[in-house]
Structure formats: C-alpha cells, structure tokens
C-alpha cells in the first residue's frame, strides 16, 4: 500500500491551473511549448505564480494569448517578448541581465566577497599567541592540578 502511494507520488507531475482542457492546443508539441512559455511568465495578480499556475482571470487571458501566438507561428521568445512589451521585465520569472538587475545578479558574488572580507578581518583581529608561562606560574599550575 505504502509502495503504491509512493509510486503514485513519483508519477504525479506538476499541477497546472488549466482547469478547462479546451484551453489546451490540439497540437501536443505546441501545447508543450506554450506551457513552457507560460511557466516563465509571472501572473501579475498573484505575482509569485506563473500564468500556468495561476487561476486569476488575467493569467487565463494571457495563457490564451500565448497559445494563440504559438499556434500562429510565434517562436517562444517572440511570445514572451509580446507579453514583456506590455508588462515589462517584471513579468519574466527569470529576470534578464541589465542595468537595473545588475545588483540582483551580482548579489551572490557580493555575499561571498562580503563573507570573505568579514573572515579576513576577524582573523586579523585574533590576538597573538599568549606569552609563555613564567616559571612561577608553571609551578603554581603544577600545585593546582591533581597529579
């Protein structure tokens, strides 16, 4: 039973919001491309879902448009550009490299550099090796420690 359940879990694919099979393109290759395009486009109503995942009206409208454009012969990036020209780069779930996103893309490098810098500074701050014990201290230590 458990094995069956696990097997079912393995089989289950990603769940998409296409609630109406009539939304899908009859050509499976085109439908796959449209889904791939839709997964790269942000639903501006929910903002953290792609238009393939969202149930919002606007996401449904955009799914229709993407499918219509793909069916009409648009390349994937042409369909994406169509939406980006209306809603801007924010609609891409994968932000492009440009002047306004440079800081975003550089942030992992900056974080590593910052960490390295911090490590270097705290290393430099570690006090030098302490002075060796004097003869008097050593004999006192010997007295204190159990044999």
């Amino acid at each position: 039973m458990k094995a069956l359940f696990l097997l079912a879990l393995l089989w289950s694919g990603a769940a998409f919001a296409i609630s109406d099979p009539a939304e899908m393109l009859p050509n499976p290759a085109q439908e796959a491309r449209a889904e791939n395009v839709g997964r790269q486009l942000r639903c501006l109503v929910c903002q953290n879902e792609s238009i393939e995942d969202s149930n919002a009206d606007l996401a449904r409208d955009l799914r229709h448009i993407v499918r219509a454009r793909i069916a009409a012969g648009d390349a994937d990036n042409q369909a994406i550009e169509w939406v980006v020209s209306r809603y801007g780069d924010f609609v891409r779930l994968r932000p492009p490299m440009n002047a306004s996103t440079a800081l975003l893309w550089a942030s992992p490098v900056l974080a590593v550099l910052g960490g390295l810098g911090f490590a270097l500074i705290s290393r430099r701050r570690t006090p030098a090796v302490p002075e060796p014990l004097t003869e008097a201290e050593r004999s006192r230590l010997a007295d204190l420690s159990p044999p």
Partner: peptide, 13 residues
C-alpha cells in the same frame, strides 16, 4: 468585456 485592450495597455487590475 474580454479585457484584451486592457492587456495592450498593460493593465493588471
């Protein structure tokens, strides 16, 4: 009613 012109304007709500 279909909201298509709104999409051309970039309306999202």
């Amino acid at each position: 009613a279909p909201g298509q012109v709104a999409i051309d304007w970039g309306v999202y709500g």
